[in-house]
């Protein structure tokens, strides 16, 4: 579904990715792990088009998309959930979902999609009038996932969903990801603390210093001695 071929990207003169290769198949959960500053977020931003790659290819469902804008990619069915701030804090939970529903265009469809989300996450419905900024970290992440899955994208690019969350909450987030995946959504997830992500992932890559070093199944990387020592903290 997604193929990244020899991708070079960065910020102005600062090249961060020096030739990244990557493949994500339909309905897969693929995880990219790697240390701080290795270029994981840069990779997702490049795929989504927030920064334009210098060279290399990005193909999505057979279409060359490396120079397309984020808006076009949303239309093609790619969604991106950034690292850290990924909700509108001063908007209410409901308004966040309404904004998330923008690509659906039709007000009736929007309403229906939001009601489905509320049926699935009663907690969000209970808090729909509250400012999203007042939610807990886990609730914010759920809100971000909910408003993204609501528009039924083909592929979700997810940057560090577990950032700053307690282990129990991380488990919950990953259960949600698994659930959404079973509804047919493909995931490309970036993680720094990666054990849980690797357990869920069908396949995974290690990214370090802007190139990918290893590729294996999630379990495979979890068992890999070098990966354990270097990237999973022993």
């Amino acid at each position: 579904m997604l193929e990244v071929y020899d991708l070079y990207s960065g910020y102005g003169k600062i090249e961060v990715l020096h030739g990244v290769f990557l493949r994500v198949s339909h309905r897969e959960i693929v995880c990219i792990i790697g240390p701080n500053g290795s270029g994981k977020s840069t990779l997702l931003k490049s795929i989504f088009g927030l920064i334009k790659p210098y060279r290399g290819k990005i193909q999505f469902m057979g279409l060359e998309i490396s120079q397309k804008d984020p808006e076009e990619k949303v239309a093609l069915g790619i969604s991106y959930i950034p690292q850290g701030r990924n909700i509108f804090p001063s908007l209410s939970v409901l308004e966040n979902l309404e904004m998330g529903a923008t690509p659906l265009r039709d007000p009736l469809k929007m309403k229906k999609a939001i009601q489905e989300i509320f049926d699935h996450y009663p907690l969000l419905e209970k808090k729909k009038r509250l400012k999203a900024g007042s939610l807990s970290g886990g609730e914010k992440q759920i809100l971000a996932l909910a408003r993204t899955s609501m528009i039924k994208p083909e592929l979700i690019l997810l940057d560090e969903p577990s950032l700053g969350l307690a282990p129990k909450v991380v488990d919950q987030i990953y259960r949600e990801i698994d659930l959404i995946n079973h509804q047919g959504v493909t995931f490309l997830i970036v993680e720094q603390n990666a054990r849980k992500a690797l357990r869920l992932a069908h396949r995974a890559y290690v990214l370090d210093l802007g190139v990918n070093r290893l590729e294996d199944t999630g379990e495979g990387l979890l068992q890999n001695e070098e990966v354990k020592r270097l990237y999973l903290g022993g």
Partner: peptide
């Protein structure tokens, strides 16, 4: 909707773009 979009953009322009808000 337009008013809410403006508040969203004012919160976070990049996120608004990411979410396809014109």
């Amino acid at each position: 909707r337009m008013g809410k979009s403006m508040r969203a953009i004012s919160d976070d322009l990049e996120l608004a773009r990411v979410m396809g808000i014109p």
